Amino acid sequence: AQALAPETVRVITVGTTDSTVPDAEGNLASALGARVGEIFVIRPDGLVLCRISDPTQLNDVAKHLTAGTAPTHFDTAQSATTAVVDDEGHREHVWLALSNALDQADPSDREAMLVRLALILGSQATSTSFDLALKDVALKSATR
């Protein structure tokens, strides 16, 4: 929490008798695909930023968060988003994959990388669905 000041950081424990969030049936742990002792860093909007099993890695997480980079050396357990099949889970998976790709791209090539990605995805979509997607994105950009 001190490393991320002035952001508000809370520790929430799940599943133990003295937990902030009781999870006797293990529903939350199951939804996250959590293992015993695993630590999740979750944004206020519910997006899982990372999962670690060693509390000493929290300092590295804080460094990456303040630098705006993506850590690549943490646990490689299957993301809970890959098990979610609804639209929101799919969008979250796409967002995480795209964020990771942008973090790994050369900063001078990010815009070109997004153009290449749009061309590849556009060639795989129908003309109608691609046109609707562009219109939707343009409308959202205009309202920001």
Rank of each mutant, 00 (worst) to 15 (best):
E92F: 01
S127M: 07
T82G: 00
A133Q: 03
R10I: 13
P22H: 13
D131W: 00
V11I: 15
D136L: 12
V14L: 03
E88G: 08
V84L: 12
V61K: 00
M113I: 01
A105L: 09
A31G: 11
S129M: 08
A101H: 03
A101S: 09
D86N: 15
P6D: 05
E25W: 00
A77Q: 12
V137N: 01
T72I: 07
V84T: 10
D86Y: 04
P55L: 06
D18M: 12
A105E: 15
T16M: 13
R35V: 06
P22R: 13
A142P: 00
G37P: 05
D60C: 00
S30W: 05
G46S: 10
S99L: 12
V21P: 01
S123W: 05
L47T: 15
V36W: 04
S53Q: 13
A3F: 01
A142F: 03
P44G: 14
A125C: 08
C50D: 06
A77W: 04
A77V: 10
P44Y: 01
L49D: 08
V41D: 00
A5N: 09
A138Y: 03
S108N: 11
V14G: 03
A118K: 01
T72M: 08
D103V: 03
D23W: 01
H93D: 11
G68Q: 08
D75V: 11
G46Y: 05
S127P: 01
D54R: 14
A83D: 06
A97Q: 12
Q78N: 09
D106Q: 10
E38C: 02
G122N: 04
D136M: 09
D54H: 10
T56A: 13
A29F: 02
T66C: 04
A31N: 07
A62M: 05
D131N: 12
V9T: 15
T13M: 09
D136T: 14
V137W: 08
R91Y: 12
G37N: 12
T17V: 15
S129R: 12
S108C: 01
C50H: 01
L96W: 09
D109A: 11
P107S: 02
I120C: 09
D131H: 07
G15F: 04
R144A: 11
V41E: 00
D75T: 14
D106F: 05
D75Y: 04
L4N: 02
K135M: 13
L65C: 07
V21Y: 12
H64D: 07
V48A: 06
V94R: 01
G68K: 09
G37V: 03
N100C: 07
A101D: 05
G46M: 03
R144C: 09
E111W: 00
V137Q: 08
A3Y: 03
E38I: 00
A24Y: 07
E88Y: 13
H64L: 02
V85G: 14
L58M: 12
A34L: 07
V94H: 01
D109E: 14
S53N: 14
T128K: 09
D54T: 04
L102P: 03
A118W: 05
D45K: 03
D136V: 05
V41H: 05
A62N: 08
A70M: 13
E25Y: 11
L32T: 00
V137K: 00
C50Y: 02
R51H: 09
